[in-house]
Design a protein around this nucleic acid. Structure first.
Lengths: 234, 234
DNA sequence: GGACTTGTTTACCCGCGGGTAACATACCTA
DNA sequence: TAGGTATGTTACCCGCGGGTAAACAAGTCC
């Protein structure tokens, strides 16, 4: 989660045993990172439950059993909390793209892999924040930042679709609209997943990918019975 | 938009000419309805622009060039404003279901028709409100009401899917997950449509339906070139 | 012409919640 | 042991915005 931030200054010394006076300070630093992450996760959960506006910093602090100023010790504003949650969620998706980039399989399969990770990310604790971080709630600079990240992902999906059409693994289609449809379906998971957790994120993502792949119109590979019914209608 | 509310008391008299003292009062009543609708539409537009929480009642009033108490003259609370917008949007979708119910075509085609109307509704001025009305922002009773309406639509889509699977016009699938995927993709339109209005709601809906129908995996009916490429891979 | 209704305004209330100042404590370092 | 730094706390500020009271303006009806 903190991959963006610089890691603590690493001296050459072994981290263990040595009673170096630096030891304690390094530990404190790591402690601080842990606490900061806890604050962000607490915020994410509270945003999940109540939404960004209805979640107060007192709520978030209470969840951690501390007081509001303590939260402000780790974070400069409520807005930043939302932003960090957003980044945490989006980072999972970016990782999926990186992971898949150099796979030697048809683009459709790479796309499917990305979409599965995407779905899992949306169903994760940061999903809600990632999906609903509204530019209206953010300062212009953060809004720009978030838009850029969203756009990067959108473009990544479109690219995979184009590649798939090119290599024949994806039905010719409008990449932009198709990307919107796919991402939209997955994003929307964040809206209902809280209420209905009968499936895991992975299961949902897999089910969605099946729908995307096959489409609604029956294929010739459909069951004989269905095929017979289809013929009868015609 | 006001289909829910009782219409003004209709006397047997012709509405025109007669200098009946009732005339004025009826006109005022109609006037009032018009103004009320204007208030709700103004709220919808303001919610679109800023989001529910960031749109103040002063903003909405200003948009109508009146003052806040005037808005409260037509509506009892901000919450109700959101609710009315929601209902206005959802009503379009319910109408689509009614319209399609008795059509003598395969269920897939009825589903497509509903989805197209659905998409148009989401791209309409009430789309945002319909899609983002959060139970967290609403009183329990209104929240229940909205959930019921949402569920009704969800069940309607699932039903059409089941019927389609039965009559062979739809590929066998999990109705619940498929309905979520379809509705999610369409709902999400509300998130990006404001920014990117290069297409009309109808065009978007049509494009989406194409994606849903065909799916990503190429069909045998694909272009000869694509077919050739597919064979070559295998 | 005077009471009653309808629509709109001005002027206000007040609580919630983001954010901060200033103080308390513990712990590390010299 | 003194001084600094990291981590919390209590107690507060204050503005925004939802909501309202009460006055005011303009018909409408008898």
């Amino acid at each position: 989660m903190n991959s963006r931030r610089a890691s603590p200054p690493t001296t050459g010394k072994p981290a263990v045993a040595s009673a170096s006076p630096w030891r304690a300070s390094r530990e404190r630093l790591r402690d601080r990172e842990l606490k900061r992450d806890a604050v962000i996760r607490a915020a994410a959960r509270e945003f999940n439950r109540k939404g960004y506006h209805n979640a107060s910093l007192d709520d978030i602090a209470a969840r951690l059993e501390v007081t509001k100023p303590t939260v402000y010790y780790y974070v400069t504003s409520k807005e930043q909390l939302l932003f960090e949650c957003f980044v945490a969620g989006v980072e999972q998706i970016r990782a999926a793209f990186r992971e898949v980039r150099h796979l030697a399989v048809p683009a459709r399969e790479r796309l499917n892999a990305v979409l599965r990770h995407y779905g899992e990310a949306v169903a994760s604790e940061f999903g809600w924040c990632m999906v609903r971080a509204e530019d209206q709630d953010l300062s212009p600079s953060m809004s720009r930042h978030i838009k850029a990240l969203k756009s990067e992902i959108d473009q990544g999906i479109r690219r995979l679709i184009r590649e798939g059409v090119q290599d024949g693994s994806i039905q010719p289609c409008d990449p932009k609209m198709t990307a919107f449809a796919l991402a939209g379906a997955l994003n929307w998971i964040a809206h209902w997943y809280r209420e209905d957790q009968t499936l895991t994120g992975a299961q949902i993502a897999a089910a969605f990918v099946t729908v995307f792949e096959g489409g609604l119109r029956p294929r010739r590979s459909a069951s004989p019975a269905a095929r017979a019914r289809t013929r009868r209608r015609a």
